[in-house]
């Protein structure tokens, strides 16, 4: 998703302007000399300024650089899957872990990611399950990280050491 520097600069400029505008809506409580909006205002202006500079520098090689370069993963469905499964499986974790528990969610994510990488589904499942069990034991049972147990909640008392 590489885009031309002019566009990069404009995005940053717009972001800076949003930050600066928002920060002017923050009012100082009581008798403070500088309110909560002071620092974000400075930062927002800085952001807008460097965005402008990047755009102007981009103008110099307007013709040399392509406006938009298709990302590598857009070339095949397989490649897109391998790419998007990474942020996708993190989001899946966020929404599924409370209901399914860590063990099942981790197994699903690991199996899917390994299978997407070209490993045979059964091998991926075995490897995924082993890693999930190992991390569950290490982090939840031994290090007491409060990972959700899902369906195992009622017997989790025996699984925390």
């Amino acid at each position: 998703m590489k885009v031309h520097d002019i566009i990069v600069g404009i995005v940053i400029l717009a972001l800076g302007l949003c930050v600066a505008t928002y920060s002017t809506t923050l009012v100082a409580p009581r008798n403070l000399n500088y309110g909560p909006g002071f620092f974000p205002l400075l930062v927002g202006c800085g952001l807008a300024l460097v965005g402008l500079v990047i755009s102007l520098q981009g103008l110099r090689n307007l013709r040399v650089e392509p406006v938009f370069v298709l990302p590598e993963w857009a070339r095949s469905a397989q490649m897109a899957l391998r790419f998007w499964i990474l942020p996708g499986s993190i989001l899946f974790y966020v929404f599924a872990v409370e209901a399914l528990g860590f063990l099942a969610t981790a197994t699903l994510i690991l199996t899917a990611a390994m299978a997407a990488g070209g490993i045979h589904l059964f091998k991926a499942f075995v490897a995924g399950l082993l890693v999930a069990v190992a991390t569950n034991v290490a982090f939840a049972s031994l290090l007491h990280v409060p990972l959700p147990w899902g369906p195992l909640t009622s017997i989790s008392g025996w699984l925390i050491w």
């Binding site: 909640t153 017997i155 025996w158």
Partner: peptide
């Protein structure tokens, strides 16, 4: 041991607390 503990868990399931607390 697991069996006995399991039974105990079932028998006192309605008594608070029956599982780990947070």
């Amino acid at each position: 041991a697991v069996f006995v503990v399991g039974l105990a868990g079932v028998a006192f399931a309605d008594e608070f607390p029956a599982r780990p607390l947070t």
